[in-house]
Amino acid sequence: MRPFKEIKANYYFTKEDEARLSELKPLMEKRAEKVVGALYQWIIQTDSAKRIFKNESLIKHVMRLVRTWFISLFSGRYDNYFYDTLIRIGQKHEKVGVDPHFMTRAINIIRNACVDILCEEMEHNREKYLISINKILDINLDIITSAYLEEEIKGYSPAYRIKIQLVRYGEIFSQVVSLVLIVGLSIITVAVTYLCGKDIYEILSGKLEQTIVTALGSVLILWVMLELLNTEITHLKGGKFKISVFVGVALVTVIRETMIATLKHETIEFITSLIAAILIMGIVYWLVKKTEEDRR
């Protein structure tokens, strides 16, 4: 399976699309029965579909699941949990023998129902909302179908099954390490907060000249720790990994060291070397940051 970030990028699924879909949530929740009803009518009128959904109670159970899935399309949250849910849908379809054709046809019915809803409810600017709906439906179909085919291949290839298990264990290990890293960063952030508070207390106690520089350095380190923590949390949710944050850590550390060296009256050569390091790291930080922004 391709990473979710790559799939969204290939469909040009942007933050604007997420916001538009989120705006539609109240409307689609209100009109969800129309969508589910359209799919229900197709199932009961199609012989090949009726052979899979053998009784009315099963059809109603599936329709409840479809309703929940449909509303989730407009949740505004398209993270790893959303991605994993779609993978499980594809895997379940393969296990119960639902042909990918039926999923493709179901998406087509749901797409048409959404078009009808927007035409009935919106007079202006409906085109951009339709584009966002088409994107999320295509992404769903892509992931569910890919998961279905991957699950099917596993049944024929023992080597492929081993490969998938290794990848899955690797992903689990990566998630655990990320969680440990977040806990570690949280502990360090608390410690830096304590040091910062201690420096501020000494300033208020009258030791202004001795501690104001170290207090400012502690504040800079605290700011960087919060950035690191937020970056790791975002990455854990499926967001982009920002190298610029780590360059920023090095830059702030050297800045703090320069401030302390100035206070301690270190040699001019040592202070000059720190300033040169700041200049180089500043250029590197700007180049990395610019590259990250260009890739958005």
Rank of each mutant, 00 (worst) to 15 (best):
E171I: 13
W286Q: 14
K135N: 12
T234K: 14
V247H: 01
V252L: 03
E23W: 08
T193E: 00
I255T: 15
S186D: 01
K60N: 11
L229A: 00
M122I: 06
S48H: 11
I139Y: 04
V192W: 04
K50P: 00
K5W: 03
T253E: 07
Y160L: 08
L274E: 07
S218E: 12
R295C: 14
G282E: 15
K289L: 13
A215E: 15
K25R: 13
A159G: 06
G238K: 04
S72W: 00
R2Y: 11
R296E: 08
I109Q: 09
T14F: 06
T211C: 01
R126M: 02
V190M: 10
I110H: 02
E18R: 03
M281L: 15
T258N: 07
I280M: 12
T214E: 13
L279S: 12
E232A: 10
S22A: 08
I280F: 14
I203Y: 04
L220F: 10
L58V: 10
W286K: 15
K198T: 02
W286S: 03
L228D: 00
I44A: 06
C119N: 09
E120R: 04
H235G: 10
Y40G: 05
G155L: 10
K15Y: 04
T193N: 02
H124Q: 07
K128L: 01
G76V: 00
N112Y: 00
I133C: 04
E16S: 15
N80L: 04
S244I: 01
A9W: 01
T46F: 10
I243Y: 03
L208H: 11
R88Q: 05
K8F: 06
D17C: 05
T46G: 12
L39R: 02
E123A: 08
H93G: 06
Y40R: 15
M259I: 03
L208Y: 15
V284L: 14
L130T: 02
A32C: 10
V247D: 03
Q45A: 05
I200W: 12
F53Y: 15
E266V: 00
M28C: 11
S57C: 06
I233M: 02
K5P: 02
F241C: 08
R67V: 03
I255L: 13
V284Q: 12
V219A: 13
T234R: 15
V284C: 13
L58Y: 10
V247Q: 02
E33T: 08
I107H: 06
K34N: 05
I139C: 11
P158V: 03
V213R: 11
E120K: 05
E293R: 14
L226N: 00
R168G: 14
K207Q: 09
L137D: 10
S273M: 13
L216D: 14
V96P: 10
L185V: 08
E227Q: 07
G170H: 15
G217H: 09
G97K: 15
V98D: 00
I221A: 00
E120T: 08
K30R: 14
A191T: 09
E171Y: 11
L220D: 04
C114F: 06
Y83N: 09
I7K: 01
